[in-house]
Design a protein around this nucleic acid. Structure first.
Lengths: 221, 221
DNA sequence: GCACTAATGTACGAACCAGTACGTTAGCTA
DNA sequence: TAGCTAACGTACTGGTTCGTACATTAGTGC
């Protein structure tokens, strides 16, 4: 997520709009993820930047729009990751398992993103609604699921009545919960869902769950 | 969740510590769920109560402790609901499905609780950690799962290597995600996960998923 | 090298908000 | 019914925090 890392602009431009904006977004992402929207402090973001609060208002307009920009960039990152998906050369069962595992990995590697999404849900997704960019961002992963599902259903490997969006929700819910709710779950049940020693276990569990669901004969009652 | 509903204390005591505390907790639950911990306003809570801000500090000590008290009561409610669980007269498959459905129903009926848990996770479960009551609250549902799982595994209906806490996490993740992330999911994928018309569909989907996972033959590789 | 504008820094204000000092009264008990 | 205390109300404060008015400079085009 960090886009800026030069120590003290060695020989570079002193005034660089793109770099300043990227740095603000980096720090703002951390701060919003750390403390939530209302808990985040604009002054704190400015202080941890090589620029001043003035610049936040100059480039983004305000706290609200800054948070929207943070969300836009965070969603852009997963969108790019999803575009790199390369699983359709596998057979449907292996492809779905691989897709689930990549989703699992991505969630684990981007806890800040998970927190931002949780925060945005607390606020009723009003920033996504206010963003033109996020309105029609789409999901490459969804298209991949759609195609794998179609192949698997044609060949009779998968049960026919499964929808791509639903399957995406199923996979996401497990991956998301594991990261987002690890604190309360750990405090109440004494088990750390993101314990590295348990990582492979939960990754396999997710794949098993999804494949079992897709290949089970449904009892129509 | 609402414990107080008398219109304007008809003939009752004017000074009633228990009623005042319960009313503060009711309103605080709504306010914290609405706006998050930092977004919630103590003045707003007081204003929507028949008492004053002074009383909040008199009874609870401060905003932080008030939130902890809200969490304690909210977790107490699900604990009570879980103690009413009566599924062990069913065969293991039906019992697990029924348990999953009841979890599904409970999450749907208590969106405020879901929001409080999300908020508490944003803050690293620090209030649960600070609460003696919540430290060892336990989970009746977990015990039920444990027993059903044992029966199902003994009879060979279920695969042997499933843990009760893991299964609880699996069920919870689906139920929780559906309610907690409905706003962002709806905004991004154009599908309302809590649409009443889709309720039965997702309820069945959850049961199918869990049962498929428990009864699938595992490919040990 | 001059002028113009994008980029930046400083200092401040006004509203907000958690928390409290101080005073009052209902209701119980002896 | 006197007295005591738990329960309650009012008014205020001190610090915080988003946002901005005003001043300045780096870089660019001519």
């Amino acid at each position: 997520m960090t886009s800026v890392e030069e120590p003290v602009r060695p020989g570079g431009r002193m005034r660089d709009a793109a770099r300043t904006q990227a740095e603000i977004l980096d720090v703002a992402t951390q701060e919003f993820a750390r403390a939530g929207y209302d808990g985040a402090r604009v002054d704190e973001i400015a202080a941890r930047t090589r620029t001043t609060k003035r610049m936040i208002y100059y480039y983004f307009g305000g706290k609200e729009q800054l948070f929207t920009a943070v969300l836009e960039r965070a969603y852009g990152v997963i969108r790019e990751a999803e575009q790199q998906l390369d699983v359709e050369h596998l057979d449907p069962v292996a492809a779905i398992r691989r897709l689930a595992e990549l989703t699992f990995d991505h969630h684990e590697q981007h806890p800040d993103f998970i927190r931002l999404v949780s925060i945005e849900n607390i606020h009723g997704a009003e920033h996504i609604a206010a963003s033109e960019k996020l309105g029609r961002i789409g999901s490459p992963a969804l298209e991949v699921i759609r195609r794998i599902l179609a192949t698997g259903q044609e060949s009779g490997l998968f049960t026919a009545d499964v929808d791509a969006v639903d399957l995406h929700a199923m996979i996401s819910s497990f991956c998301f919960f594991r990261v987002a709710n690890r604190h309360t779950f750990g405090a109440l049940f004494g088990r750390d869902l993101v314990d590295p020693a348990q990582r492979a276990h939960y990754r396999t569990m997710l794949g098993d769950m999804v494949i079992a669901y897709l290949t089970a004969e449904r009892t129509t009652d």
